[in-house]
Structures are given as structure tokens and as C-alpha cells.
Design a protein around this nucleic acid. Sequence first.
DNA 1: AGGATATACACAAACGTTTGTGCAGAGACA
DNA 2: TGTCTCTGCACAAACGTTTGTGTATATCCT
Lengths: 356, 356
Amino acid sequence: MGSPKKQTPGAAPPAVSMADLARELGVSMTTISRALSDHHSIGAATKQRVLKLAKKLNYQPNHLAAALRKGQSRLLGVVVPYIEGKFFPSVIQGIEQAASKAGFSVIVCQSHEDVQLERRNVETLLNAQVAGVLVSLARNTQDYHHFDKVRSRGVPLVFFDRIPAGEQVNSVVLNDREGAFQSTRHLLEQGCRRIAHLAGPAHLNIYQHRRQGYLDALATYSIAPDESLIIRSDMSLEEGAQAMRQLLALANPIDAVFAAGDSAILGALQVLKAQGIRVPQDIALAGFSNEFFTAITEPQLTSVDQRCEEMGQAAVRLFLELAATPDAPFVQRQVVLQPELFVRESSRQGEGVGLG
Amino acid sequence: MGSPKKQTPGAAPPAVSMADLARELGVSMTTISRALSDHHSIGAATKQRVLKLAKKLNYQPNHLAAALRKGQSRLLGVVVPYIEGKFFPSVIQGIEQAASKAGFSVIVCQSHEDVQLERRNVETLLNAQVAGVLVSLARNTQDYHHFDKVRSRGVPLVFFDRIPAGEQVNSVVLNDREGAFQSTRHLLEQGCRRIAHLAGPAHLNIYQHRRQGYLDALATYSIAPDESLIIRSDMSLEEGAQAMRQLLALANPIDAVFAAGDSAILGALQVLKAQGIRVPQDIALAGFSNEFFTAITEPQLTSVDQRCEEMGQAAVRLFLELAATPDAPFVQRQVVLQPELFVRESSRQGEGVGLG
DNA sequence: AGGATATACACAAACGTTTGTGCAGAGACA
DNA sequence: TGTCTCTGCACAAACGTTTGTGTATATCCT
């Protein structure tokens, strides 16, 4: 009366392994392994035979076993704050593309802007024995000790966009200062002179640099920065709107706003339209990120493109370089991408609301 | 004269393994393994000692080894057409959340709407020994043989949103018919009677159902479907605009458009505004997906929310059920989520352009 | 011809887990 | 007292690769 359940209906069929190939061909597993990895000590004829049989039996290498033996997998870990909006999906897109070209798969984790989760994500990735870790920091990450483990395990570590402040790390970033500089200079060229700035969290490198670019551009026109025109926020739509209301309450009116993010400038735009203030005639606007919606608002919003996909690709390239020389002493590397300013209706003086 | 390079400066320190714990405690590795996995045959006292030492030595389990031994990893493979816009990122968000709660990591692959790539992605995931595969089909996938391997390996397979036609599969979908029905009924309730439909690729289940929902709603008002009012497209902004132009050329004018996607309805909106046709007074509009931009166009666009995150979570739950009973005979399961209609300015009769 | 070099392959030990089986002692029951 | 069931643990064989070392022929140089 044996249990009929023993039949295991959906059980996996015995996957063909190197041992099977070896038995079939009457050679050792060594030969199979080396033939498949194109090792020099295997004859061309043997390689052919192995490859042919492998194809015939539909041999699929078990990456897990290889990873275990070699101590690292073909997996690339990515930690980002979130995957909504345009930026991070696009960067991931670039990462995925470059990684798969190099034979790596990508694991994506979200920190949800939380250091705790970021820490756990890093642990998870290390436990999965990833070959490398690509990180864009959570907003409130100020302590970087959870990345020590990555390094000490000899796993290549690359930061992108949001990088640790004052640390020796490998990174790829946008030239945020330059982007902000171009954007602000453009506003100046349109004749604007009292330009406000919606700044982001002060400890994040990207917002520091955007602020600096804004200040530098003002300086080229010999305009002294006015602290009352610089408003910090979390770059959300709501706080952008709030900041705009605050700016409108100033005695000495402004004629332009440069925001370090598109959501904030959108919030500002909505406030202006609600109050019947014309954009760009009364107040010109410029944002940052070239979000999808910048092309469909009315007026369309001027913004700075962050080269998202290039950033992802560059991060992978950097990782590959590091992985290629595992024992090399650490030298800090940084890739800096050049932004591109997209001028749209919200900042072009001498144009009407320009309907389509 | 030994090479000084032998020092391997960045080499990984010997990670602490179960063998180390066993040696330290003077017990066998079996005991360690079972204590850590809370096996019943290990005494409470021993478990405590093991757990304590593990914490002290900062023991990190090697998932790779476990996966190799058990024949499956704690990785969940996901294949989606792309990760731009709102839908897929949000679904992935839901997947990630539910998966990490269950102790799984997620590998995301994009098929870029290409069957070839989709096939390769599936191979890649299987090679990575994923514990399960979650798929939303590429647009041109009509042959489903590349998923046979997944099943035959006993790996749980769940489709979401875009699922194979006429196949016995596990899936989680939105009630697209209901969403389209509600949306169209809403337009009818607003007084619209000649309602056009921008339909998507005919072979995708989602577009079939949205079309059907549209037809069903018309039927409740005893309106005979007019084929000249149904225009197929790829749901892009451009083709949406093109379709709108085509509709405007009709002798018998229409008074509303229900599109199976938000990009298409946005294209339509842009055409209407360019031609000075009032929305919703002259022509009312409704879309599908509840994309971010529906809330910022002017007028704001009525749309159907797809419960993206719920969909991701449901897919993971389904996977977990399947994984829990690996030897159970196949029974088709389908989770159907209820959509939610978001009524906005583009379809509300009796309202002006309603500037926020 | 003698020694070095290159070629072509096999042996077997890892990598770090999990798990079926075996074995001892303890308590329960007849 | 003998049998039975638990409890608590150890042995050792897997899982499918990679790779250092060994060994036999063939080739080359002088």
C-alpha cells in the first residue's frame, strides 16, 4: 500500500549536468568544464565534440554551482531609493542593458529612502553573493558603515547619482553644478534678474551642486545671492507649491524660479496658474530631471536632462573594470556625465503660452 | 623573489561558515544547520548556544550553497516588457515588497516587447535557478513554448496583466472588462452617445477585454456598436493623435472617446486642443491606467486605475502558494483584481475647464 | 640524442550547505 | 524486563561546478 503521492507529478526532470556529458563522451568532467569555458589546454576537436553534445542534450550550466565554487555569482545588486518617476527606472534600464551584455543579471532593491532598509538590502545582496553592488543612497543616509562589509568582502562597489559625502568611493555622477549653471544662465539670458531657487536636502551631493551651479551663474552676472530667494524643501510637488506661495509673498517680486527637481517646479507652476500669474511672461520657470511630464504641462517646462541611461551604463562599466582587477589597490574613480538643458516654453521670454 | 602581488590586498577575509560554528561549539555541522533552521530535533538549549555564537561571530549564511543543495534559490525572476511609465514600476514595487517580506529577492528583466529577448530572459532566470518566474508578456509573444521549460523544471510560473491566450496558466489580472465598462458607462451617464474607442493590439487579452467592456456598456444603453468608431493602434501618443484626427474627419461627429491607454488619450487631447475643440464640452475623454500625467493635464484626464501594487503582491502570493505545494497536480488559478475609475475634468459635463 | 616546452587530458579536492540514516539514552507502557 | 516512542545529536553523502596538480604523448631546439 505505497502512497501514490510518491509519484511527484510535477517533479523536475533530472537536468543534464557536466557529469552526463562526460559520461556520454567518455572523458572527464575537467575536460567538459574546460572545453565549455574555452580553456587553452583542450584540443579544438574535443571542444567541438563537447559543444555539439551540449547543444544536443540541451545542457544548461548551473550558475549556482559555479558561483559557489568561484565564490561569486553573475548577479549584480542594485540599491535605489525608489523606482517611480523617470530617473531611476531609466538608470536601471541602462544598468540592465549593459549588465546583460556582459552576462550579468540584475537584482534591484529599493531602500524607500530609509537607511535601515538600505542596510538590509545590502546584507541581502551580499548573502546572494552578488558580484558587485551599485548604490544610490537613501535621502537620510549619513552613516556609511554598512558598506564596509561590501568592500571587506572584496565585492566591487559603485555609487551613482547620490553618493557618500567626503568618502573615498567609486562613483558616477551627473555634473549637477553644470546643469544648474546652464539652466540659471539661460534664465539670466532671458532677462530674468531676481531668480529664486528651490533647493533640495542640503546633505545630498546632488542638491549641493545644483545650488552651487545656481550661485555660480548668478555670479557671472555679478548678482549677489539673496538667501531669502533660496528655499529648501524635499522637492515634492506639495513643498514646491508651498515654496512658491512663500516666494509670492515677498515684497520685492521675483521674475524666475530654478528648482532642483521637476516635481517642485510643477507644484510652483500650479500655484502660479491658480493665481493667474503668467508663465513665463511674469515668472519664468526651470526644473531639473527632464521628467516625462515636463513636455505635457502648459506651458511645457524647461528642464535639465540627467542622462539616466548613460549613468546606468557607466556604473556597470566601472563595476566591470573593478571586477577585472580584483586585487588591485583601491584608487578612487569618478565618472562625470554632462547634462543637457532642454529649453521649453516655461522659460522662453518673448513667446506666448504657445499652444501646440 | 616571490612576487609581492601574492599579498592580494583587497582579498576577501575568510567568511565564517557553519563549519566554524560547529568547531567552536564542539558539535556537528548538522546540529548547526538544524539549529539555525529551527529543526525540531535540536534541543532548545543547543539552539540558543548556536544562535548566540552565530550572532557573535556575525555568521552570514551562504544562500548560494543552500540553493545548490536544495536545487532552488531564494530568487524570484520577473520578466516585464519595460519599466517606464507608471504601471510596471508600480507592479514591481508590489512584487518587491511582498517578495522581500517572504524572504525572496527579485531579479527584474525587460523583454523590450521582443519575444526573442523574452525567451533569453527566461533562460537566464532558469540558469540563475530562480525559485519562481513572474511574467507579463511582450506585445508580440504569440508562441509560448519557451515557458514549457519553466514548468518542466517544476518552477512555479505566474503570469500577470498580459497573459497567454487560451492556455492553462496561473495568472493575476485586472478586470479590464469591468474597468472599461465603468468608464464607458460613466461617459454615457454624462450624456455622450457617439463614443469612439481607441483599441490596442487585438491579440493581447487586456485590450480584448477593454474593448468588450466598451461594447457591453454601449449595449446597456441599447447603442449598436459602430465599427468606424473603433480604431486600433499601439496605444502610443502618436497613434492616439493620429486616431483622433481620423475620428474628427468623420461626417457624423463623435462626442466622446474612451481609449484603452492613457498615452493614446493624451495624444487625442493634444490634437483636440490644437484644433480648439473643447474638452469635455465638445468631446469628453477617458483613458486607462491612471498614469501620473492624467492628474496634471488640462483638463485632467479621467482614467481607470489598475491596482498596480496589488497586482504585484497578488502575483507573489500566488507564487508562494505554488511553491508551498511543489508536487500538487496543476490546477489553473486566476486572481482578478477590481479596477477603480477616477473621474476627472476631461469627462465631467456641466463643468468648465475648471482651473484648479 | 637529450632536455625543454607545449599539448591534451584525468584525478580529486574543494565551495558551504542540507538531509537521510543511524545511534544512543530517556521515559512510557504493558 | 522488554518493547516502543521520543529526544538530541553525529556521519557522510549529496548538489554541480572549478581548478591545482599530475602524467602521458608530441614537438622543438641545439
